[in-house]
Design a binder for these strands. Sequence first.
DNA 1: GGCTCTCTTTAGACGAGACTAAAGCTCGCC
DNA 2: GGCGAGCTTTAGTCTCGTCTAAAGAGAGCC
Lengths: 227, 227
Amino acid sequence: MLGSVVEDYLKGIYKLQQEHGRVPTSAVAQRVGVTDASATNMIKRLAELGLARHHPYRGVELTEAGEKVALEVIRHHRLIELYLKEALGYPWDQVDAEAERLEHHISEEFEDRIDAALGHPTVDPHGDPIPSKDGTVDDEYLPRLTDLQPGERAVIRRVSDRDAERLRYLAQLGLYPGVAVYLRERAPFNGPLFVRVGDTEHVLGHDLAATIGVEQRRDAEPAPAER
Amino acid sequence: MLGSVVEDYLKGIYKLQQEHGRVPTSAVAQRVGVTDASATNMIKRLAELGLARHHPYRGVELTEAGEKVALEVIRHHRLIELYLKEALGYPWDQVDAEAERLEHHISEEFEDRIDAALGHPTVDPHGDPIPSKDGTVDDEYLPRLTDLQPGERAVIRRVSDRDAERLRYLAQLGLYPGVAVYLRERAPFNGPLFVRVGDTEHVLGHDLAATIGVEQRRDAEPAPAER
DNA sequence: GGCTCTCTTTAGACGAGACTAAAGCTCGCC
DNA sequence: GGCGAGCTTTAGTCTCGTCTAAAGAGAGCC
């Protein structure tokens, strides 16, 4: 057993690594919520454990082993999130916080049982992919709502889970994975987007829209009623 | 938040206190799985936190506040045990270990939701009472199987959860809460008991039988088919 | 090529909690 | 009433993970 602190670092580094390859110490510190000095310290320990490679003054990378652990933690996290929502009726914006604590304390057995209860799902409530048990994820880049051109249609596939308040707002607007949207117009210079969901139109700030991953649809296709 | 170590001590002390009032340090140490010195140390800290009263060289008692915390932990534990069994199909002998870790990491919200999902239950899979949210338990003493006389009938109400192996054995024999039993005979000098369940008769060692709490039935009454 | 600004690392300390070894109480027994 | 045996407590360390303060690297800019 590794201790939940180590797991949190690994998870944090993994996620940062997704975005920018080698990760600076300060980014890890910020993500995990400790000082830079503490992060340096832990990074050195991770290196000793063979879970990361430390390139002094130039960041960290996970080793194979470290990545494996990170993916296990992420799998736990996302399975738990989905379970909370599906089996216990949690609202969308609360699952992340609860999963955050639980993810470090469940057994293999528990993991297997909720996985089975959910029918071996592949995505969590925010549309994030659930790593498989053997440590593989299909985490390809999705275009954002902001990548669409006016007149284009798409289905929401993924929404960042980093901010509960934002999730509540989006839920209120009916914007979550599986929902079909139509971009009517967009203001220039990263201005707001005018997005239709069914009959209603919403005005979304550019930054908010940029957190929404979508799958583009050909114009002709009727939006499938998923989920 | 108190940290799961403190919670474990409180839970341990509470349970020991049930049996023998003021609890010796060594008993706490043994229960929690640390040395006596460590237990003394922690007991002093609990006293500083106002959760226990330390009577040097003569044991510990919980304060009201300490007891309240202990009961919350126990409530979590037992709700989780039951949930694992009922909702996820865990076998009887595995729920304790899993609950042991989860009990310290669930939120009020989670507690409420599994409580509701289970229909606000009052006993866990071993027949142990689930403390109410406001911190009250109905934990009265039950006679043991060993208190019965030959020819008497009873319904099993409670089985100690302290040993998974024993639980597996009892489950195999069909001896769990809700099951009606009949004591055919008992050997003298704490010898084995001959117990009937339905059509089959089992021979139980005295010590094992002493861990089984029962509710006695008048002879005439047919054994109700509960659970 | 040297300066400076920023980021990173080192050094030293601290709080939790555990451990071992040694010293201190209690209490039963003679 | 005194003496051990057996608990308990104290004393001193250790590890983990964090922090602050201070020293060190790197990189852009002149």
